[in-house]
Design a protein around this nucleic acid. Structure first.
Lengths: 210, 210
DNA sequence: GTATTTATGTATCGATCGTTACATAAAGGA
DNA sequence: TCCTTTATGTAACGATCGATACATAAATAC
């Protein structure tokens, strides 16, 4: 069926991964076609034949990013036995992921396109949707903890999810500024200090942050 | 002395303010010369004669931004009678500043140039320096509180400053996503919940966040 | 007055942006 | 073998990027 015509001479998946890394490092507007084709090892007509356009390539790249780079963060959030461990794991995995030395620092979803016209730009809309989904995932996990009795019924899941999502966004900028893993963990610890108060824990020992 | 030659036909300070707003809304790379000259009401030769280059204009614009837009945030930090009120005011003023409806959302210093090559780009270096200065201001305020006995001697000022600075950076992205003042205040409250734990307060009433 | 100095508007510079025509190469179908 | 189909490399498209050359306008100095 699809075996007609001259076969593609490059690995589409590998090229997409290279494109993802370029977008990750430079953002959507900062990544030029020259940057992309150079990293992907192909010429622009091949890029357009395989991916359609720069926009479409970015959308595929962010999808790959979501499927391949954020997994530890979100699987920890879902699978941790308690909400506290879920949030702690979420923050710890974020600190780890954002300070990998062999990768661009910070998060593609958070930093990829901050300056496009949000109401018009397709790219900006897509990233914003993904950020909203992430915050919703946090809120759902907290809601589950309320339902399970781990958190008090009057716990404000939405406010807490907003707070932790915002901390994660800030960690992207912090990472871009060259923050070490330890510095990111300082932020994670700070956020967990908030948990202690928010969850209404009466501390027997006066300080037990993270 | 400087009254020789044809006088400038536009208000340099007003034009700089317009340029600042464009950079604030679109970022350094996202703001084109066309955008700038249109907003400033001048032609490009006038821009270059008055400001030198796009880079120099941006640096002047960020300086104006620092002097004119961030004042409430940082004066509150310095002048509040206690560190707790200082941090609370810092966060509250940030939430207010980042959600002004008649202005670009978020912070120019935080969002202005996230994707330039950090080691090379002059713009990126300047913004990074300003972000570092802001974090240092937080750390100094906390250190003062330790010296005054408000905070315990083993209080980790650097870690706390990192945390609160990161929260503020995250609020810029949150604001860019259209967060309301209330949503930003939810984040501020979360950060103050962290304060309660970090400062080692033994809460008599179990919850008193912000 | 004339000379000098600075600013403005027009028009354009070379470089780069994202994108595509076009001829050729390499595969399967007949 | 010839036709169709798809991919590749070269080369270039129009648009826009940041930045300027140049002639003219408007001020002061003499």
């Amino acid at each position: 069926m699809s075996e007609r015509g001259r076969p593609r001479s490059f690995d589409r998946a590998a090229a997409l991964r290279r494109a993802m890394e370029v977008f990750w490092a430079k953002g959507y507007e900062g990544a030029s076609l020259s940057d992309l084709t150079a990293a992907m090892g192909i010429n622009s007509p091949s890029l357009y034949a395989a991916f359609g356009s720069k926009e479409a390539l970015f959308l595929e790249a962010t999808d790959l990013y979501t499927r391949s780079e954020g997994t530890d963060i979100w699987s920890t959030l879902e699978q941790a036995p308690t909400a506290r461990l879920a949030i702690e794991g979420f923050l710890t995995e974020t600190a780890k992921a954002y300070s990998q030395i062999d990768r661009p620092q910070g998060c593609l979803i958070a930093l990829g396109a901050l300056h496009q016209d949000s109401t018009q730009g397709l790219i900006c809309q897509d990233l914003r949707r993904r950020r909203a989904e992430n915050q919703t995932a946090l809120e759902r996990r907290l809601g589950r903890a309320v339902a399970e009795g781990e958190l008090p019924a009057d716990f404000d899941c939405q406010a807490a999810a907003t707070f932790f999502a915002t901390v994660q966004h800030g960690m992207s900028i912090q990472a871009r500024d060259g923050a070490t893993h330890a510095a990111l963990m300082a932020t994670a610890s700070g956020a967990m200090a908030a948990w202690t108060t928010m969850a209404g824990v009466r501390p027997r020992d006066k300080r037990k942050a993270l």
